[in-house]
Amino acid sequence: MKITGYTDENFQQAFEGQPYTVMINPDTIKWQRGIDYNEQQAPNTSTPSQKYKSTPVEKLNFDITIDCTGVVDSKRTDLAKEISTLENIVYTYHGKIHRPNFVKVQWGKSLVFKGVLKSMDISYTLFKPDGSPLRAKLSLGFTQYISPEDEEQLKGNESPDITHLVSVVEGNTLPQLCQKTWNDNSYYIQVAQYNNLNKFRNLKGGQKLIFPPIIQPE
């Protein structure tokens, strides 16, 4: 596993020096993903429907062991140096960018995670007779980072955060047009209010309606 620092949010400008190569690959990796929903009670129904709200950022958590006894790697026996090198990549505040680095965690070809460090816990587990640590377990937690440019691309043109100009075809209703535009028909009241409409059905063919950015409830 390699951990690389980047000084830009697009992960193009690598931080000075080499990526940190983990001495012993983690036994397990926890990659968290989730979806948030608004529970909305539809008329004449007994159970709420799950309306999509947002997709939270992903999280990556794993433990690594740094063993400086010389058994794992006879050239890497300075535990303080190992931890300092890793900290400089993922944790240390850098004045040039006014923040810690952006980080890419990569293990093989299939596991690539781009984010920022959220937590770093160090447990020292083996010591020399004089008390100097020889081995440490590091628990690392990363949160996904998506640049503003990438976030706009992910939203796409069907996002309710974008203004749309919609041409009405004879027989269209506002719920139908909301469903077609946003894949969600629940915004028809906001659209009607914005366009000063008093009828949701039997719209006039050929008229133009503005579908404004929608403020979603928290």
Rank of each mutant, 00 (worst) to 15 (best):
S186D: 12
D8Y: 10
N88D: 13
I146P: 01
K114R: 08
D78C: 01
N185D: 15
F113C: 02
F62E: 01
Y187I: 07
N25H: 14
R201Q: 08
I97G: 01
I210G: 03
I162Y: 04
V57F: 15
N61E: 15
G70T: 01
Q12G: 12
F102W: 08
D78I: 00
D36S: 11
I146G: 01
F113E: 01
I215Y: 04
T28G: 12
S74R: 07
G205W: 03
T4K: 02
V105E: 06
N44Y: 15
I66E: 03
V168Q: 03
Q13Y: 06
D36H: 08
V112N: 08
V71A: 13
N157M: 07
G17K: 10
Q50W: 10
V22I: 15
R33D: 14
Q190W: 05
K155R: 09
T65L: 10
N202G: 14
I97E: 05
Q18G: 05
N101V: 02
D150T: 15
E218S: 15
K59S: 09
F200M: 07
Y52M: 08
E58G: 06
K2V: 15
N61C: 10
A80L: 08
P129E: 05
T92M: 05
H164C: 03
G115L: 02
N44E: 15
N172W: 01
R33P: 07
L154C: 10
N101P: 00
N198R: 12
R135G: 12
P43Y: 08
L177R: 00
P212T: 01
K2E: 15
E39D: 15
I24L: 11
K59F: 03
E82L: 00
D27G: 10
H94G: 02
